[in-house]
Simulated assay, not measured.
Amino acid sequence: MSTFTIFLALIVVVAFLLIVVVMVQNPKGGGLSSSFGGGGTQQLGGVKKTTDFLDKSTWTLATLLLVLILLSNVAINRGSENVDSKALDPDAAAAQPLPAVPEDNAATTLPEASTATDSAQ
């Protein structure tokens, strides 16, 4: 199992956990709805600690996901070549031959379409 595969599995797990944590949260009700008197109803029943935990978990999982994605870029197996592009490699351009041109032009032409008068005769 390569390092990139491990990073990929961790990215999938963290992304799934981030989706679950975001879906569990109550909507914050920001914007215009909080200025018209609807902002104070979210803190009833002592759920301040739960929202703090979910908020911190969201930021932690999002940061972890970003770090794992950046670290997985380092773990990608790029091979042993140091060439960035095949267009910059002079050996790669010389290795590809040009397509052969057929010498018999009769084989490449399309047969002429017969007209209805030819079939009647």
Rank of each mutant, 00 (worst) to 15 (best):
S2W: 00
F4K: 10
F4M: 07
F4I: 14
T5P: 01
I6P: 01
I6H: 09
L8Y: 06
A9E: 08
V13G: 10
V13C: 07
A15L: 05
A15T: 04
F16D: 02
L17G: 06
L17T: 14
V20I: 15
V21S: 13
V21A: 12
V22I: 09
V22P: 06
V22W: 13
Q25N: 10
N26Y: 14
P27V: 12
P27L: 06
K28T: 15
K28W: 14
G29R: 05
G31E: 02
L32D: 10
S35G: 04
F36G: 05
G38I: 03
G40F: 08
Q42P: 01
G45K: 15
G45S: 07
G46I: 03
G46Y: 03
K48I: 13
K49R: 14
T51S: 11
D52L: 13
D52R: 14
F53C: 10
F53G: 08
L54N: 03
L54R: 03
K56T: 04
S57G: 06
S57Y: 01
W59V: 08
L61M: 01
L61R: 07
A62D: 10
A62E: 01
A62T: 03
L64G: 02
L66T: 03
L66K: 01
L66A: 15
V67C: 00
I69V: 08
L71D: 00
S72G: 01
S72W: 00
S72T: 05
I76V: 12
R78D: 02
G79K: 06
V83K: 08
D84I: 13
L88M: 11
L88G: 07
L88F: 08
D89C: 08
D89V: 02
A92S: 10
A93S: 04
A95H: 09
A95M: 09
L98V: 05
L98A: 14
P99Q: 02
P99E: 09
A100H: 11
P102V: 09
D104K: 12
D104N: 15
N105C: 01
N105D: 04
N105Q: 09
N105W: 09
A107R: 12
T108K: 03
P111V: 15
E112K: 11
A113I: 05
S114K: 09
T115K: 14
A116N: 12
A116W: 04
A116E: 15
T117W: 11
Q121H: 15
